[in-house]
């Protein structure tokens, strides 16, 4: 049953990455690269943690995390779209802000006050019948609500992007925004919308860590997951199913690393912990020169 435990952990570890990468896929397809995902995840994480700690409501915590991340996402959108600031520089700033703000709130509210800081977490909900399927049941259908949400969100976002009028406009605006403008579609609003959607999902992915993965907040607890999600997007060729599978691959790296630590191998656990990051490097090398990259990625749109 080692394998079932490993795969079940894979799905759990993949969930936050997939949330964030789905959002970023939308944003990049619309022509905006937000490298500040790590910062947004931290904002989401501290917001969810604080909200759950004081209200006891997990649902409220998740909503608050998304709204807080969207607030910062709006600031990013204003700079990157309206002001036409460099998206990379702006995203880097967002990472620093996320790290600083989350750390600041944590220290002021929790660390320096000596409050016992564990919060309640999302419980695993075994789905009736489905969870009893041999092998696949315990892996896929004995998980928390957010994992199920990823299962639903993946096909929905893929459908919207590929089969609807909105999705067509999003795909077009990342390739040739002037063409989109010339048929009378709102370039700026489409990009704002995708950035805000990506921010909300980054907030959700961040919130997952303290209230589903652990029951604590630790400064910098995202540990590069925002950047891993960022590399998943080109690796997946800017497609939603690709991002889902890529997420599972990274989830497996995390799960394996945890398992190996428990297995008491004669390897220092610090080496094992580098596994997801080594995979990230490998993926970056593999996905260089992807030709599917949206042509207008990182190019601010100048009307007229």
């Amino acid at each position: 049953m080692e394998l079932i435990a490993l795969l079940s952990a894979t799905v759990r570890m993949a969930t936050p990455l997939i949330f964030v990468a789905i959002g970023e896929t939308y944003s990049e397809r619309a022509g905006v690269m937000n490298i500040g995902l790590e910062g947004l995840m931290l904002i989401g994480a501290i917001t969810a943690y604080t909200a759950v700690f004081f209200t006891g409501s997990l649902f409220f915590g998740l909503i608050a995390a998304m709204l807080a991340a969207m607030l910062f996402g709006f600031g990013f959108a204003y700079l990157a779209v309206t002001i036409k600031a460099n998206q990379i520089v702006t995203g880097a700033a967002l990472n620093m802000i996320g790290l600083g703000v989350s750390g600041f709130i944590y220290r002021v509210v929790f660390a320096n006050t000596g409050i016992v800081s564990a919060v309640k977490t999302l419980p695993a909900i075994p789905l009736p019948f489905l969870s009893e399927i041999p092998f696949a049941g315990p892996i896929l259908f004995n998980q928390n609500a957010l994992v199920y949400f990823v299962f639903i969100l993946t096909p929905i976002t893929a459908f919207v992007l590929n089969k609807t009028s909105l999705g067509l406009s999003i795909r077009a605006v990342g390739e040739h925004p002037r063409a989109v403008d010339s048929v009378g579609l709102p370039v700026f609003r489409l990009r704002y919308g995708c950035i805000l959607f990506a921010a909300a999902l980054a907030g959700l992915g961040g919130a997952y860590l303290p209230i589903a993965h652990a029951n604590q907040f630790v400064e910098g607890l995202t540990a590069g997951r925002g950047f891993i999600a960022l590399t998943m997007v080109p690796f997946a060729g800017w497609t939603i199913p690709g991002v889902f599978l890529g997420g599972l691959l990274f989830g497996a790296a995390y799960a394996l690393q945890l398992r190996l630590q428990v297995a008491q191998l004669a390897i220092a656990y610090q080496f094992l912990q580098t596994l997801p990051y080594l995979l990230t490097l490998a993926v970056l090398i593999l996905s260089r020169n992807r030709t599917e990259q949206p042509k207008a990625l990182c190019v601010p749109y100048e009307a007229g």
């Binding site: 390739e175 063409a179 009378g184």
Partner: peptide, 18 residues
């Protein structure tokens, strides 16, 4: 031309119409 190269003819024609 105001055409998106990665989309089909029909997708370019319908863009912004619905």
């Amino acid at each position: 031309f105001m055409l998106v190269p990665t989309l089909t003819v029909a997708e370019n024609v319908i863009l912004g119409m619905r």
